[in-house]
Simulated assay, not measured.
Amino acid sequence: MNSIGEAITTVFGIVLVAAIALEIRQRRKRLRELYNVLDAEDRQLVADLDTLVANGILQPYAGG
């Protein structure tokens, strides 16, 4: 009887941790979409493009 209670508690704990992880993942995705946060690779690309514009190799988009 004791092992059944431990098994149920373990399963409940795993489900709870999975639900929390899913909620965190969804909130992080929503915040990234809201604030358009750049990751490290994107930041490096933007920095390289800014350098090219500063050196006159590229011209910034002027819009039509």
Rank of each mutant, 00 (worst) to 15 (best):
M1G: 11
M1P: 08
S3F: 02
S3Q: 11
I4A: 02
G5S: 11
E6V: 05
A7H: 05
A7C: 03
A7T: 14
I8Q: 08
T9Q: 09
T9C: 09
F12Y: 12
F12D: 15
F12A: 15
F12S: 15
G13W: 01
G13E: 02
G13I: 03
I14G: 08
I14A: 15
V15K: 01
L16R: 05
L16Y: 02
V17E: 04
V17G: 04
A18L: 05
A19L: 04
A21G: 10
L22R: 10
I24N: 01
I24A: 14
I24F: 12
I24W: 13
I24G: 11
Q26S: 12
R27G: 01
K29S: 10
K29C: 01
L31P: 05
R32E: 15
R32M: 03
R32C: 09
Y35C: 06
Y35N: 15
V37P: 05
L38A: 13
A40M: 02
E41L: 07
E41W: 07
D42N: 12
D42H: 06
R43N: 07
D48W: 06
D48E: 14
D48M: 13
L49E: 11
D50A: 14
D50G: 10
D50S: 07
T51V: 09
T51R: 14
T51F: 07
L52T: 03
V53H: 03
A54H: 08
N55E: 11
N55S: 09
G56M: 03
I57R: 04
L58A: 13
L58E: 07
Q59Y: 01
Q59R: 11
P60V: 08
Y61E: 15
G63V: 02
